[in-house]
C-alpha cells in the first residue's frame, strides 16, 4: 500500500506566535499513499503544523516540502496537489450541498462540475439532501460534505484536522471508513487527532506531538516496542457503552 516515495518531509520546523514558541523543531516524513496520524493533546501545535503544510501559515524556520515542492518557495505547486479539511467544517451554510460541491469544482476549473458534484453526493450518501441548504444538515452530514468538497478534483494529498471531533460514534466510524477508502485508492492522508484509538485504527505511521516537538514516531508496532512487553492477564471483557449503543441502534435499523 504505502510506497517508498516521500509525500511530505518536514525538518526542524519552528513557529512562534508573539514570541511564544508553538513548534520547537518538528521533524517527520510521510510516505506517499499512507495514512499518517499526528497525535497530540489540545494546544500541542497540531493545527499549526496543518496550517503550515497547507500554505496558510509560514514557518519561522526549518524546511518543509510537499511532493518535493518547498512550501515557502512554491506554494502554488503545493496547492495544486493538496486539499484541506479544517477543524471546523468549512462548508457554505447558505448554499445547498450540491451548490457547495459545484462551487469547489468550478474553482478547480474542472470540465464537468455538475457531474463531479453528483458523483460525490452519491458516494457520500448525500443525494437526498443535495438540494437542501447546509444550515439544516446534521454534524455528520456536514463533515461528509466537508470531506467530499476536499475530494473535488482528486487531490493527491488530503489534510484532515481532527476530522472526527464533535461527531457521534456512527458518524465517526463513517469518517474512518472514508479515510481508509481514500488511502486504498492511493491518496496520502495526513490527519490529526487527540484520540489514541483513532490513530490506532487508521494510521500506518503515527507521530506524537507534545509541547511543539515530536516525542515519538513510527508504526503502531514500533511504538508498542517502546513500552514493556505485554503481559497476559485474564480480564472479563465488559462491552463498552459505545458497543452497546451501536448494537442497539444497529438492531433498530435492521427492523
Amino acid at each position: 500500500m504505502a510506497g517508498n516515495e516521500i509525500a511530505i518531509s518536514v525538518q526542524g520546523l519552528k513557529k512562534y506566535y508573539n514570541n511564544i514558541p508553538v513548534l520547537t523543531g518538528v521533524d517527520f516524513q510521510v510516505k506517499t499513499g499512507s495514512i499518517f496520524a499526528l497525535l497530540g493533546s489540545n494546544g500541542a501545535g497540531k493545527t499549526t503544523i496543518v496550517k503550515i503544510l497547507t500554505t496558510l501559515l509560514k514557518p519561522d524556520s526549518g524546511k518543509a516540502a510537499v511532493n518535493g515542492f518547498d512550501l515557502v518557495a512554491k506554494p502554488e505547486n503545493v496547492r495544486q496537489v493538496i486539499s484541506l479539511t479544517g477543524q471546523f467544517a468549512a462548508v457554505d451554510e447558505v448554499l445547498t450541498g450540491r451548490e457547495n460541491l459545484i462551487m469547489i469544482a468550478r474553482l478547480r476549473h474542472l470540465n464537468n462540475p455538475r457531474q463531479v458534484a453528483d458523483d460525490l453526493l452519491k458516494r457520500f450518501g448525500l443525494t437526498d439532501a443535495a438540494e437542501r441548504r447546509v444550515s439544516g444538515y446534521s454534524g455528520g452530514m456536514r463533515r461528509r460534505l466537508d470531506i467530499a468538497m476536499s475530494l473535488v478534483g482528486k487531490p493527491q494529498l488530503i489534510f484532515l484536522d481532527e476530522p472526527t471531533s464533535g461527531l457521534d460514534p456512527e458518524a465517526r466510524i463513517e469518517v474512518w471508513k472514508i479515510v481508509k477508502e481514500l488511502a486504498d485508492s492511493g491518496t496520502t492522508v495526513f490527519l490529526t487527532t487527540q484520540y489514541l484509538e483513532e490513530a490506532e485504527q487508521l494510521a500506518d505511521q503515527i507521530a506524537i506531538l507534545h509541547k511543539g516537538r515530536i516525542i515519538a514516531g513510527g508504526t503502531l508496532a514500533e511504538l508498542k516496542k517502546l513500552f514493556p512487553p505485554a503481559k497476559v492477564e485474564y480480564v472479563e471483557k465488559q462491552p463498552t457503552l459505545e458497543e452497546i449503543f451501536l448494537a442497539i441502534v444497529g438492531k433498530k435499523e435492521d427492523k
Binding site: 496550517k51 484541506l84 479544517g86 471546523f88
Partner: peptide, 13 residues
C-alpha cells in the same frame, strides 16, 4: 470564522 477562507486559501485559486 467558519474556515471557508482557509479552504479557499489552500486551493489553487
Amino acid at each position: 470564522q467558519r474556515g471557508i477562507f482557509e479552504r479557499f486559501h489552500s486551493m489553487p485559486i
